[in-house]
Computed example of a mutant assay.
Amino acid sequence: MNILLLKVTLMPSVIALVTLAIRKWGNKVGGLIGSMPWVAGPILLFFILEQGTAFGIHSIQGSMTGILALISFCLSYATFSRKLSWLPTILLSYGLYTATAVFFNYLQLNLLLSYAIVITTVLLALYFFPKPTGHLISTRRLPFDIPIRMIIATLFVLAITGLARMLGPDWSGILTPFPIMTTVLAIFSHTLQGSNATIATLRGLVMGLLGFTTFLFLQAFLLSQFSIALSFGIAFIVNVLINLVASRVW
């Protein structure tokens, strides 16, 4: 299998499909779809193919820390986007993302406790998440915006997986849920549709973290017992079911 070819074809396809989903079904549904493990799943797969199954399983603990940092990113970007343009908003959000990741990595919590904290944090974030005010601005589109999104996301994935051996499983895991797709969706929705669209998209993403977190959590147990395809397939179905329930509740 040519792993590099997989990296440069899979990620652009995912970004394009999620962008089209947002255009068809709206920001909230698009955010929920975007929260699925389209990025983290392939990154975990690349870790396993390049570094081994043990490395991939070990990285999942770090992924829980990364998800907490991702929640911090989404909440801060949604909040700051009301008053600031995309550049200061993204810089502040990345700053809070990094601080959250460093803090929880320092605590070195076990997997079960980390999972419980992430689920609780998602529920709290949904409760306190900013609400859109007024109407969404009609969608504007930049020329060739989908190819631009595809290139940015692919470069992120190549960088993270390329640094995996140097970073080790802990920080590789933390970077697995790095807001690659989230950054692309947030900046483009903020720039083209305004803060309300960004808030709706990011709230959908946070809602989807209930299933996304469970997907990664299950890999810590499934990968040691089953093949990669079966492990991912079982967890993906669970992820979809949780997202369906979450979309009904919130």
Rank of each mutant, 00 (worst) to 15 (best):
W86Y: 15
F73Y: 15
D170K: 14
I187A: 12
T89C: 12
Y97R: 03
M150I: 02
F103Y: 13
I151H: 03
R82I: 06
T182Y: 01
P130Y: 05
S81W: 10
R149P: 01
A99C: 03
L142W: 10
T182R: 03
R82G: 09
H190Q: 09
P169E: 09
T154Q: 07
I160Q: 00
F128C: 09
P177A: 11
G162E: 08
P143A: 04
I152Y: 08
S81R: 05
S114I: 08
L113D: 03
L136W: 04
L155F: 00
R141H: 08
Y115K: 04
T98A: 14
A99N: 00
V206W: 07
A164Y: 09
L84K: 02
P88W: 03
M181L: 15
I151F: 10
Y127I: 11
T139N: 07
K83C: 06
I187N: 13
R82H: 10
T183W: 13
L112F: 12
F156M: 11
T183M: 15
A101I: 01
S76D: 04
I180L: 14
S138M: 06
W171N: 07
R82T: 12
G168T: 10
S81Y: 09
G134S: 08
R203N: 14
L113W: 10
G162K: 02
H190L: 08
T100V: 11
I90L: 12
S189R: 14
G134D: 06
S138N: 08
I174G: 02
V184K: 09
F144P: 00
L84G: 01
I119L: 15
F128G: 03
I180F: 00
L175E: 13
A116D: 02
I187S: 11
L155A: 14
T161I: 14
L123H: 05
L163C: 12
L163D: 11
T79E: 04
L107M: 07
L192A: 02
A200Y: 04
H135N: 14
T191Q: 15
V157C: 04
I137N: 07
W86V: 13
T100K: 02
L158K: 03
G204V: 11
I199G: 02
L109I: 04
A197F: 09
I199N: 02
N105H: 06
T176W: 10
W86N: 06
P179V: 05
G95C: 04
